[in-house]
Design a protein around this nucleic acid. Structure first.
Lengths: 183, 183
DNA sequence: GTCTATACGCTGATAGAC
DNA sequence: GTCTATCAGCGTATAGAC
């Protein structure tokens, strides 16, 4: 991917995670990168193409994270590294891409919806698998179904970033402390 | 509030909870209500005014809910009724207003940000108070700080509505089952 | 690849008639 | 209160020069 092209995706991702898919324009990106509107259309003919590219790159990054964390021995360390992703987001005062795009799901282009659904499947499957791993090795003691616990953890992390912005408090910190208590 | 005025707020609320604040226009509302653009401007001169009205009415509804639930004797029943609010949202395939407006918080008009922050304070304070009440009466046995547990419950409920839309699964059901296990 | 120029519908918003 | 008429600016998008 050319330099300009990847920079466009960079800016688009940040704008999506700040103002939502309907809240930014090609002009916003062009201004930041000091290029013209039409240059973006050269790389991404339609806004839908750009939206898809943002989600696909995020999926790629996550799958690389999964591959890397496979070498980590224990499930707890893997979970901590997963939490780190959200900590970095909170420090940058950004919500995660799922928290940014999920609320307006039904109004997104169909192709973006599909990519987003695949992403949610990948994340939920992976968290479920490491929770199962930790349970099997008696590292995790949480009660209830593994899939329920996975959805609970993912949900609380996702929304903590949203509430952090609204409250200006470290909601993620509160939520993570509680995960530590119950896992 | 006149009939038209409240209907405008009705439609605006649903649009915000479907497409976000930046994802709907006066025309969208006008079409649904079979009125003209300018009629909406008569009731709400600027879009900001309308956005504020939506949040304020939601706050009012919540505070009425709190007043009513005060008569309920036990904390567990209060919590269940709180969860009911989210169940109704999921059935209508809507996210909650905090999940709809929170992700784009920094791009909202200042007055809307203020209203939203107040709303988050009210919700968190109330959930915290009923958790404290349940703990005191030995009805709740959860570990960890009460405020951490409050933020965890609110976060998991909020995001479950978002993930329900993306996954087409009953994530709220999964999350609530897990809350029941750990509370 | 990036530019200028341009198309054109939609956006929030206002003025004034009824 | 609601309408018609109108506005200037922004939205995505395309054509063609460099």
């Amino acid at each position: 991917m050319s330099d300009t092209k990847s920079k466009i995706v960079d800016v688009a991702e940040e704008l999506i995670r700040t103002k939502g898919y309907n809240g930014f324009s090609y002009r916003d990106i062009a201004t930041v990168l000091s290029i013209k509107n039409a240059a973006i259309h050269y790389h991404f003919p339609s806004k839908t193409d750009l939206g898809i590219a943002v989600i696909q790159r995020t999926r790629q990054n996550f799958n690389q994270f999964v591959s890397q964390s496979d070498r980590t021995i224990d499930a707890l360390t893997k979970l901590k590294k997963f939490v780190d992703i959200y900590s970095e987001s909170q420090q940058k005062n950004l919500v995660c891409f799922m928290g940014a795009l999920g609320p307006t799901f039904s109004s997104l282009p169909t192709e973006m919806q599909q990519e987003l659904s695949i992403a949610s499947r990948e994340i939920r499957d992976w968290v479920t698998s490491i929770l199962a791993e930790g349970k099997q090795h008696n590292q995790f003691k949480f009660q209830g179904a593994i899939t329920d616990q996975a959805d609970s953890i993912i949900s609380s992390l996702l929304a903590s970033l949203i509430l952090s912005k609204v409250t200006s408090e470290d909601i993620l910190g509160n939520v993570v402390r509680q995960i530590d208590k119950t896992i």
